[in-house]
């Protein structure tokens, strides 16, 4: 199925978890946060959150500077 990750169309297997997606993409998890369809998903929920076709995943880094 197709999803988008930061606006880029990406082919993934059906029912892939967010945790698995992050591992597959080899993203640096330091400070990483993410949203699916504009809803933030807490890190503790990544292993159980299954992706669906056409989901829009937004990866971003939490910044704390000021």
């Amino acid at each position: 199925m197709q999803i988008t990750v930061n606006d880029k169309v990406t082919e993934v297997v059906e029912g892939l978890s967010l945790k698995q997606l992050i591992e597959d993409l080899s993203v640096d998890e330091n400070g990483l946060a993410l949203a699916v369809n504009q809803q933030v998903i807490n890190r503790t929920l990544w292993p159980q959150h299954a992706l669906h076709a056409d989901d829009q995943v937004t990866l971003f880094t939490v910044v704390a500077g000021g």
Binding site: G31, A33, G65
Partner: peptide, 22 residues
């Protein structure tokens, strides 16, 4: 949600101006 729902204190220190510039 609140700030704690976005990011847990136990997670590593995210990016700051000292580390990343601005």
């Amino acid at each position: 949600g609140c700030y704690r729902c976005l990011y847990a204190p136990a997670q590593s220190e995210p990016n700051t101006c000292l580390a990343q510039g601005v």
